[in-house]
Computed example of a mutant assay.
Amino acid sequence: MFNAFMDDQQLLRYSRHILLPDIEYQGQEKLLNSHILIVGAGGLGSPIAIYCAAAGVGKMTICDFDDVDLSNLQRQIIHDTQSVSINKASSAKQFIQLLNPDVEVIAVTEKQTEASMKVIAKDVDVIIDGSDNFTTRYALNRIAVSLKKPLVSGAAVGYEGQISVFDMRHDKSPCYHCLFPDTGDRSETRCADNGVFSPTVGMIGTAQAAEVMKIILGIGESLEGRLLLLDVKSMQWKNIQLKKDPSCAVCSK
């Protein structure tokens, strides 16, 4: 993880960021000294990890206990044919180390409990949900609420995707449970069962990466309190305003 002044190679690598008035040298230092948690190294996790690593996010913990399958390669762009049968978090680490040696990657390859994931999340700046199931999403939401961490959540299937930010550092922010209450009867809609147009996950994952970096840098307006819906077939984005549920079982006081 980066802890000193940038050297000449780093100044050149990140020069196009440093030229931006909202980032400059100090902003790039923030990225280099940040630590993010990416849960899921699949369709969403791939562009999240790639763009965050390329941008110089200094440390990332990537959690995925699944192995790369040939059917993943149509959309999970951090893996290649040589990665088949390798753990996804380990494969992602290999890719990132080649992309940007400045980045420290911790690959968590074993399935985690909510308690163990909370320990992992304790020291990170942003939690990113790139999973494909409600069980993990609800667990990450509870962790984010408990630790008062920002959670960047995304989902995609078919030609449609969605993204939002639940910034639990702010008392007025809704949480994931406010948007999708856990009634215990939600059916999963997964790519493995329903298919997915490969650019869809790329577009949502890239948007998640942008939200992550904006949060770290403290620039712009995040998607906190908004749900952004994408329809790739019509190439339309829809913005829906969200409100905190005062009776939410997870985040209400």
Rank of each mutant, 00 (worst) to 15 (best):
M1D: 07
N3V: 12
N3W: 01
M6E: 11
D7W: 09
D8Q: 13
L11K: 14
Y14N: 09
R16C: 06
L19I: 15
I23T: 10
I23R: 06
G27A: 11
E29A: 08
L31R: 05
N33T: 11
N33D: 00
S34T: 08
H35R: 09
H35W: 02
H35C: 02
I36Y: 02
L44V: 08
P47V: 06
Y51W: 09
A54E: 01
A54M: 01
V57W: 03
I62Y: 02
F65G: 05
N72I: 10
Q82M: 10
S83M: 08
S85G: 01
I86T: 10
N87I: 06
V105L: 01
I106R: 11
E110F: 00
E114C: 07
S116F: 00
M117V: 03
V119M: 01
K122A: 15
D125R: 05
V126N: 04
T135W: 00
K148V: 01
K149D: 05
P150Y: 10
V152C: 08
G154Y: 03
A155L: 07
Q162T: 10
Q162K: 06
F166D: 02
M168D: 01
H170G: 00
D171E: 15
S173D: 11
C175R: 03
C175I: 12
R186T: 13
R190S: 15
A192S: 15
A192T: 13
N194Q: 11
G195W: 00
V201C: 05
I204E: 05
T206P: 00
Q208I: 04
E211R: 09
M213H: 07
I215D: 07
G220P: 08
L229E: 09
M235C: 11
M235P: 00
N239F: 02
I240R: 07
Q241T: 14
C248I: 04
A249S: 14
S252Y: 04
S252V: 06
